[in-house]
Design a protein around this nucleic acid. Structure first.
Lengths: 244, 244
DNA sequence: TATGGTTGTCTATATCAATAGACATTTAAA
DNA sequence: TTTAAATGTCTATTGATATAGACAACCATA
């Protein structure tokens, strides 16, 4: 855990800065030899803060389920992961990370119909106000939430996609049933921001966490747009990989 | 500026949360009609905080040069930008964003020689301990720092690249002089984290800001790796675009 | 079983963040 | 010129954050 100092009077509490740093170190494998975080006194010395401040940071990580303190022994690492998420023509949620976890699942959060906004109409190359199916899903890996996505589909072709998705649990399969045997990722935009309230709830994040946001367009093999989606990933659980 | 409430007792000061939210709104164009942020009293009402807390947030944004308060008139928006940064086979710093800004520049921060670590050797397909040229650069758009990058080149082929880069200001040109007429991006990995101390200094960020990190490998047309680089972008100034 | 190392809890204090209110200063518009 | 609306500044107070020290409880090991 290299030397960057933590910063005071920045509006970000010391315990939160330290919690974030320790989380990164855990994911980086810095404590793999022992499977434990260094003793509180050692961390206090290292970060130049009081032991109580370290305890606040570790309590936050324990709340996330990342560490578990055991009196008399130390603070054990419970979980660490950052899934590698390939982005390519064939980007799909489950395929890419299938070999990194035991189980991937995609569950529906909500569905609905809405008229195409100017932005959505532009992306999907349809008229403003055209009917769309909106599908909100939660992506999970080994029962831990990884991403939440909102997708829009032209309702004239895919009016039934929400229903089919609910039964199959797969957008790829739903597309297939609706006469789209294959589809490709046309463009992906990536940004990052702080987690909002919904992110905290759905992705089980702690306040101040970072989400990576992708805005993506999928088209069928005739280059007709079939799906536009905005996905929000827990940044400390994923990395994106773009291969050319 | 939609409804997510700000959160108390999370280790992130209210003024910082609010400053981040207002920055996003500005970049999103929410206040383009007036070119001004809403009055402090209105923001205080909207966020449910005291006016002084809003003033702390606006003071932070003023420090970043994003807004400028004018007594009697209001708080003017000085600058907003989020450069779109294409990632493809032909990923280069200046080309991609050249049409979005008046001037792009890449300046050297530091150079040096070092032996290849296990990780660098694996990426560049050379032997561990082989000599490398390390080049640290700062990417600027319209005189505002956008990214800082550390690149490694095999020293046997590119021992002089730092020197040539210093005179030409372009890695592409330096490659050309060294017998590499063209090169392509093989893989790009993207992660996000909080800005560290060096980021704050080099990228002129405020504490708690987010950096997008790319780890990328470039190869020549014979598929021989020529450059491995780790770049850190100010997340509120860029978006990545991947076209397939 | 004795000991050293570790986490858990308590009290006290200092500093920062946020709230509250009042009033001054500046600007734009009536 | 007047007025309303906006930012600038000040004082006072409260609550959260961080520091400091002491000691209890617990665990692994010699």
């Amino acid at each position: 855990m290299a030397g960057q100092k933590i910063q005071r009077q920045t509006g970000v509490a010391l315990w939160r800065q330290i919690a974030d740093r320790i989380r990164v170190s855990i994911n980086h494998g810095d404590f793999d030899e022992t499977g434990m975080v260094p003793p509180e006194t050692a961390l206090a010395l290292q970060f130049g803060v009081n032991r109580h401040t370290i305890r606040s940071a570790l309590a936050a990580l324990a709340q996330e389920g990342i560490v578990r303190a055991v009196q008399g022994r130390g603070t054990l690492i419970e979980r660490k992961e950052r899934l590698s998420f390939p982005i390519s023509k064939r980007t799909r949620f489950s395929q890419g990370i299938g070999d990194q976890v035991r189980e991937t699942r995609s569950v529906p959060l909500a569905t609905g119909e809405e008229a195409a906004s100017a932005e959505l109409a532009r992306q999907l190359k349809i008229k403003i106000g055209a009917p769309l199916v909106r599908l909100e899903t939660l992506g999970q890996a080994d029962h831990r939430p990884v991403s939440r996505a909102t997708s829009w589909f032209p309702a004239d072709r895919f009016g039934a996609i929400a229903e089919i998705y609910r039964t199959t649990g797969s957008i790829t399969k739903a597309f297939r049933e609706l006469g789209v045997p294959d589809y490709v990722r046309v463009i992906t935009e990536i940004t990052a921001t702080h987690a909002d309230e919904s992110d905290l709830a759905d992705l089980q994040l702690s306040p101040g966490a970072i989400v990576l946001i992708t805005q993506a367009l999928n088209s069928d093999l005739d280059n007709v747009p079939v799906q536009y989606s905005i996905s929000r990933f827990a940044a400390d659980r994923v990395r994106f990989t773009i291969e050319n």
